[in-house]
Structures are given as C-alpha cells and as structure tokens.
Amino acid sequence: MTDANPDPGPTSPGFWRTDRISGAVLLGLAVAIAWETRVLPLGTFGHPGPGAMPMALAFLLGLCATMVIVGGGDAPPLRAIRWQEGGHAAGILGSAAFAALALETLGYRLTILAILVFLLGVMERRSPVAVALASFGISFGTYFVFADLLKVVLPTGPWGL
C-alpha cells in the first residue's frame, strides 16, 4: 500500500492519509468483486440472476469507497499511526491459524495446550509453573466441561486426547 505513496515531504502529510488508504482498499475490493461476479449470470431487470445482487452491491461499494477517498482529506496522515499491540495481534492470529491447521489432527486438548504454552510461555514469559498450570487447567478443564459433561463433540487426536 505504502509503495503507492509518492514520497511525501517531511512537512506535508501528502495525499495518502488513512481514510484514503482505507477507501482505496475498498475500491480495489469492489473492482475485484465485480470481476469475480462475471461468471454468474446477471439476468434481466425483471428476472435478476444470481449475479445481479453482488454486482449491484459491488457498484455501491465502489461508490462509497470513492466518497471515502474524496472526503478523506482531513484524516490523520499515515505516519501518525502506531500499533503498540502489533506483537500481541500477530501472536493471536498465528495461534488461531495454528489451531485451524491442527485441531482435527492433534485434537482439541493438545492444540489448545500448545497454543497456551506458546502464548503464556513464549509471548508473555510467565513462570514455567504458572504456564504449566494454566495451560493444562484450561485445555483439559474446558474439554471436560464441554465434551465430557455437555456432550459437545470436540475433536480428539493421538492417544485419544
């Protein structure tokens, strides 16, 4: 995204303010959706086909995005943004992605255990005892309550865990 930024001077915040970037992303999305809709029959006005609704919405989205870009002149410049929680967010996102990959092979308990050990031990650097207690407690405890007591089917992995 920032590649498109035509090197703003040190004093001027330039054209690419936050709202304008958001608007540009949305506009791109609208164009992409319209392109993807091409495979669906549009139908006629009286008999709209499956493609009519997405196409109309994509058009509307593009319109709104343009308005956001036009009206975004007084939004804060990109540089004003700080992301203090970037580390946490990446860790959480990574853990969730790992869970999606591993849930059905490793089973619920082992996957959750791994996530908790990673988040508490590696990200938060808690003491090993606390990490062990919390990870085991939460992963096995929630499984016990939901799978054993409430019969919610949760995946199991090796060793029946």
Binding site: G94, F98, L101, A102, T105, L106, F118, G157, P158, W159
Partner: peptide, 17 residues
C-alpha cells in the same frame, strides 16, 4: 512453528494405524 506442526501431524497420522 509450521514445521513443528507438520511434524506433529505426521506423528498423529502414524499412531492409530
């Protein structure tokens, strides 16, 4: 982490057989 995951998944596949 991904490599670890795939190693563990591989292990998991072997076991029940």
């Amino acid at each position: 982490m991904k490599r670890l995951a795939s190693a563990m998944i591989g292990l998991a596949l072997l076991l029940p057989a």
